[in-house]
């Protein structure tokens, strides 16, 4: 299913955007219908000068159950459809069963991100990942709560001290770059707590990780 996108669209983006589109379609239709009904009523039944005819009184306190049930039925079927699609989109937050995922640790601290590679290498502010491979980030914080988000990949999760949260993604195109931001207010540096993610091909990645491997800090 995701294969079609893989060439250009990251799978997480594919899942999120199609879900968003579905919500947008139903949301827009609902908004237009209800607002039109409102505006129609206001315009149609506006009191006009010189037309002070008496108003037909509404039968008081009589509930139109058929209308209520009809409304509930329509709304709940729409809600059911979109919620079903949300449940179907759970793969966005649950890492796929991949034979060979790349696990990288992420530590948030006021006000930068540190990335810990499998070889023990730690890099501040720069995440390099191989193209086309499932990457799993295990995210934590050493101080306040941050929220790790990669703009353009539609993935995010909070970074809490003493706990690990994870997210996954696959970046398809070598050579592309992404901006990593913090989405939770974390102090005066919040707006500047960014990092850069670079996607390289697997061979370059292997070469790079061997060249830096074992060096402490960076």
């Amino acid at each position: 299913m995701l294969g079609v996108y893989l060439a250009t669209v990251p799978p997480t983006v594919g899942i999120w955007s199609s879900l968003f589109n579905l919500y947008n379609v139903f949301g827009a239709i609902a908004a237009i219908l209800v607002i039109s009904y409102l505006v129609y009523n206001v315009v149609k039944y506006r009191r006009r000068e010189g037309h002070d005819e008496a108003v037909e009184e509404r039968g008081e306190e009589k509930v139109n159950w058929r209308k209520v049930l009809f409304t509930l039925a329509i709304t709940s079927s729409v809600l059911f459809v979109v919620e079903l699609q949300t449940f179907n989109s759970v793969p966005l937050i649950v890492p796929p069963q991949s034979s060979d995922p790349l696990n990288i640790g992420v530590v948030g601290h006021q006000w930068s991100w540190t990335f810990v590679y499998p070889n023990g290498d730690r890099l501040v502010g720069n995440l390099t990942v191989p193209a086309g491979r499932v990457v799993i980030l295990n995210i934590t914080s050493t101080d306040v709560t941050h929220s790790f988000a990669i703009t353009g990949l539609d993935v995010a999760v909070d970074a809490n001290a003493g706990r690990y949260n994870s997210l996954w993604f696959t970046a398809p195109d070598a050579g592309s770059t992404y901006t990593i931001r913090c989405k939770e207010l974390c102090g005066v540096g919040h707006a500047f707590m960014t990092a850069k993610m670079t996607v390289v091909d697997q061979a370059t990645f292997n070469a790079w990780i061997q060249s830096t491997g074992g060096k402490p800090g960076s």
Binding site: L19, F20, S147, A149, A156, V157
Partner: peptide, 21 residues
């Protein structure tokens, strides 16, 4: 109406990944 409908969007825990914050 607009605030309420966008609230439905935010009830989706998958969409919320991006919306949150």
């Amino acid at each position: 109406i607009i605030g309420g409908i966008t609230g439905v969007f935010l009830s989706s825990f998958v969409l919320d990944v991006v919306f949150r914050g």
